[in-house]
Amino acid sequence: MTDSINLKLNQQNNIKYFYNTRRFLVWTGFLGLLSVGIILLSIVPQINSTTNLYNEMLKENKRLAQLRVKVAQLDDASNSTILVNSDKINSTLPSKKPLLELLSGLNAIGNKTQVSFNDISLTPGEISTKSAESATTKKKKESNVAAKKYEVLDLDVTVTGKIQNINQFLKEVELLAPFTNVTAMTLNEKTSSNQDLSFSETVFEAKLTITTYFFNRAITATIDSSLPELTAAQQSVINGIQNFTYTTVEAQSEIRGGGLENLFPNVDSLPNVENL
């Protein structure tokens, strides 16, 4: 025990002696440790943080530039060709089934080209509501609809008239808004074989399948995405639709009826339900 106590005392004396004689070395070691600590715990994390912040600043600057461009585009948008012609474009490719517009347009063209309509029939489209469809059918239909950019409405029309009138009718149909195509046509002579008429005087019956198109897509955009610019092909489309025939269908805002003859002119009041 005395030996261990003596050993401890000797060690303490040695430490004191070392500190007294080499204190600057001790402080140097302490500073060295502190420096390493500062490098590892402060400077390196700060440099990493600074690098991340700098990259973030570059990214935010880029986004800010995009937003500035978009704000400038929106400020000029009211005079843009797209918005100026938006009514015509929306009439040419409407966002709803353009049945009334199409029928109204065909009527106008028929009057103009002096063809008469013998028959009009169409496929009304989806009748069942979405809740009535089965889940798998609904998913399949949704994926098909998502892939298609537009929907179509087919109309079968039978017209009669002279060949030049029918030709004119076909040309006018394809200048009608909403955008319409004649996708099938069958032409038959309607004139009796006994009559000796020239080709231009012969009456023909044309059975046509007319397809019209309407828009059904959902569009998504991010706040910093820039507005699309008009391409040459799109400008050409805008030029092309200037000569289209546009019809307006009056929106019905009240019930229209009346004008019927009173079948019971001498009846003042209806009988009570109990007496029936």
């Binding site: 937003l67 978009k70 704000v71 929106l74 948008a77 009211s78 843009s80 797209i82 918005l83 012609n85 938006s86 474009i89 929306n90 040419t92 490719l93 966002s95 950019k149 537009y150 955008f179 195509n181 198109y213 828009f215 897509r217 569009i219 955009a221 706040i223 507005l227 699309p228 008009l230 391409t231 092909a233 799109q234 050409s236 489309v237 805008i238 092309g240 639709i241």
Partner: peptide, 26 residues
């Protein structure tokens, strides 16, 4: 500012998409 012009942006995006489709159909 952009959100306050949301209707204009919507109109432009929809109309441009319709123009693309019309270009194909034409």
């Amino acid at each position: 500012q952009i959100l306050s012009n949301g209707l204009i942006e919507q109109s432009i995006l929809v109309t441009t998409e319709k123009l693309k489709i019309l270009a194909e159909l034409f």
